[in-house]
């Protein structure tokens, strides 16, 4: 197999908690605590999980928006986690981001033209003024905005149009990888569909790889090739999408799937309602981090942390999960078999 575009190995980001008069560190928020994954060229990997699970921190850490605590990040063969900022700058072009809030992520004092031209100038991509103009027009066409809108200000656009500008800005540097951090979450249903379709078209057109960070499982299933599920700073399951949605192999994934409301009144589905809240990442539970809310937890879960390992009875290859239940015989493993359809009420009217 060829080298993946992005390789992340044991990424950690701990935020110190400062307190007291002298501002001494009294503890750490273990926001991301050992996360590994890779993304192939042209592939979409989705990172899903609830708020506070560390999925956005992973995105920001990959972009080196703050220094990492530990771990390696390899982008297109270059190790970027410990690269000095000056050396990193030209490589930043390869990895661009689209943020959640289309209202705060565009500078209100810059015209669309300047917003889009900035990355092109920064990375010295345009040969001359005419080339810059051509690139700008190309970007507007790519995101299906009228070319004459380029001289307008961000406030003149609706949320969906602004998100298109945000996408155009990300494309301006001709990246290999786009990190979409909840890029469609703030949009209305009908506009969301427009942006989702646009992202998919762009991916096929330009062969982009995407890290799609989202909590919306229906959109994720629609968009992605593979899914990584995060809980409290750790990845608990990674699988190709059909395998994950058809036969989830981690109790947390199972509960997540069953919790999403489906637009089918009276659908007969199996429902797992988790008790309580996500524990604090300042003091994560010992053993398996999910054991405090897991309906199947047993003694081993409270003491020994499960590792991500391939699952034997997955629907497709490349399905890994971190759960002790898979060491039990199939008869005693509530996660054996393919329960996805019951959880999602697929096929019931």
């Amino acid at each position: 197999m060829s080298q993946p575009l992005l390789q992340v190995n044991d990424l950690k980001k701990h935020f110190p908690i400062k307190a007291g008069f002298l501002g001494g560190t009294t503890g750490y928020v273990y926001a991301v605590d050992g996360v590994s994954f890779d993304i192939a060229k042209g592939e979409t990997l989705s990172l899903v999980g609830e708020s506070g699970c560390g999925k956005s921190t992973v995105g920001k850490a990959l972009l080196r928006l703050f220094p990492l605590t530990a771990g390696q990040v390899v982008l297109g063969g270059d190790r970027i986690d410990d690269m000095p900022n000056g050396t990193l700058r030209p490589l930043r072009r390869k990895m661009q981001v689209v943020f959640q809030d289309p209202f705060s992520s565009l500078n209100p004092r810059m015209r669309v033209r300047d917003i889009l031209a900035e990355p092109i100038r920064n990375f010295g991509l345009a040969k001359d003024a005419a080339d810059l103009e051509k690139r700008l027009e190309g970007l507007m066409d790519k995101v299906r905005l009228p070319r004459d809108a380029i001289n307008r200000w961000p406030h003149e656009f609706s949320g969906g149009q602004r998100q298109r500008i945000g996408i155009a800005r990300a494309l301006a540097g001709e990246p290999d990888l786009i990190i979409c951090d909840e890029a469609v979450s703030a949009l209305d249903v009908s506009v969301k569909a427009q942006i989702v379709n646009l992202l998919q078209d762009l991916q096929t057109e330009l062969g982009l790889a995407m890290l799609f960070i989202s909590h919306d499982l229906a959109i994720v299933e629609h968009m992605t090739h593979r899914v990584a599920v995060m809980y409290l700073g750790k990845i608990v399951e990674v699988a190709p999408k059909r395998s994950l949605f058809g036969a989830p192999k981690h109790p947390y994934t199972e509960a997540l799937l069953s919790a999403v409301p489906v637009p089918m009144p009276g659908a007969a589905r199996e429902r797992i309602i988790l008790k309580g809240d996500v524990p604090s990442p300042i003091n994560p539970p010992k053993g398996c981090r999910f054991h405090t809310r897991c309906p199947y937890a047993f003694d081993r879960c409270r003491t020994e942390e499960p590792q991500l390992r391939p699952v034997a009875d997955a629907l497709e290859g490349g399905h890994i999960a971190a759960c002790h239940l898979h060491d039990r015989p199939a008869g005693e493993n509530p996660l054996s078999g393919a329960k996805g359809a019951q959880l999602l009420a697929v096929g019931s009217a």
Binding site: A193, Q194, L217, A218, R242, G246, P263, L344, G347
Partner: peptide, 19 residues
């Protein structure tokens, strides 16, 4: 315009309808 959960299982993965 809403993606349906479970679309990868039923194989009815289509483009989302836009308004």
């Amino acid at each position: 315009s809403m993606p349906k959960l479970g679309s990868s299982l039923t194989g009815e993965e289509t483009r989302l309808a836009e308004i």
